[in-house]
Design a protein around this nucleic acid. Structure first.
Lengths: 214, 214
DNA sequence: CGTGCAGCTCTTGTATACAAAACCCCGTGC
DNA sequence: GCACGGGGTTTTGTATACAAGAGCTGCACG
């Protein structure tokens, strides 16, 4: 069963990401409880989580408002992701099992298939891409890394980036994944780290050129 | 006012760190509420936090037990700290203000004073050391980094390390801080990053040699 | 003697009630 | 006209009550 707390988290996060709640908007527990259709208790837990993930910030009194993310913030998120996922790739290169390697290959083939035709299936690309990165993080076998990265991988940013990707950008991602798989097969931690870091830095670049104002 | 939730967090964390609750011990909300002297609600929030910080893990059912940390875990924590605090130092080198630099110098002088005499004041050393690192993180001006590092800087590890430091090890820390201050004064981000990373890697080494079994 | 299931207990998840603190608005004094 | 309280209102923090699910115990049966 999906708990009421998770439902509240997903819905409130959705409100923020969709822009229904713009930066500075107060997040009142009771009002949100009415919207989501649960009581204050699970809403409260959801808000704590959103605060921890910097979707919301707490004012001097105990009140929460939607956080504002500027370009510097986005750059910092990508920089942290590059570091941490690079580290995850290095760990994964040392620990990966043959089965996990096969799973990565299959995942990346599905990803390539999604963008192979004339009309790339961006949604499927995103899903497989997400899965690919999750597999790498899983192979790194570090619970700490996993939770830290979970709070960093902001689906909205990925989405905004990918919807504006030109198709050969998507292809390039697939090729970088291939390189990563090669590094894993060779058990070369430094190589894997470098490929992953480059992969994510390029994603920031793509994001930047797609939305210049940010 | 310090909230009941914070009190519960501090007390339960204390129980775990003191070893009163050894790994595998179940953490039941009502029992802890009785111990701390508050109701289940704030205990629940405290437990969520402890879970997020990997002090406790959740079993297949929804129950929490005290987490077991092995040597690999400790190594991973130090590796992450080296990366993230290195990054923080680099950011700080670019952004630091003259005032913050002065504060760092004063802090490090206090730290040196604490270990200058024949009988080093380890408790004071630890407090000033903590403050020094917090000042650096503050100067890095990244809320994300601050929260990530907060969940990583495990006071117990620092304590266990420092209590076994030989005095010239403490002095060496102070000198490394001096180097860091020089790098900040020179606004040399790469230098600052390298010094900080080395500083933390040495701390892991000291911890390792002090407690070989872990 | 081992296995499976029924019933019960214990624990968590959620709702609601109450307490206390923060905010806001408005009137008052300067 | 503006700063400053004061009181009501809103909002969060905490306690408690209730519901639902997980796990344990012990008995029956193979």
């Amino acid at each position: 069963m999906t708990t009421a707390s998770d439902k509240a988290y997903a819905e409130i996060r959705g409100l923020i990401l969709a822009g229904d709640a713009s930066p500075g908007t107060p997040l009142r527990e009771e009002a949100l409880a009415d919207i989501v259709g649960v009581s204050r208790t699970p809403v409260r837990e959801a808000l704590k989580r959103l605060e921890a993930e910097h979707y919301a910030i707490r004012t001097s009194g105990g009140r929460l408002v939607v956080a504002a993310w500027d370009g510097d913030d986005v750059a910092e998120i990508f920089a942290l992701r590059a570091m941490l996922e690079g580290h995850a790739a290095a760990r994964a290169a040392r620990r990966i099992t043959p089965d996990a390697l096969l799973a990565l290959k299959a995942c990346n083939q599905a990803l390539q298939a999604a963008v192979a035709g004339d009309a790339p299936d961006v949604a499927r690309f995103l899903a497989e891409n997400r899965r690919f990165h999750d597999l790498v993080i899983g192979a790194s076998a570090s619970a700490r890394l996993a939770t830290m990265l979970a709070s960093l991988v902001e689906q909205p940013i990925v989405r905004r980036t990918a919807t504006r990707y030109a198709r050969d950008d998507l292809m390039r991602s697939a090729h970088e994944h291939d390189q990563l798989i090669q590094a894993f097969a060779a058990r070369d931690a430094e190589w894997a780290k470098a490929v992953m870091a480059a992969h994510i830095h390029r994603a920031l670049h793509a994001f930047r050129t797609a939305s210049p104002s940010k």
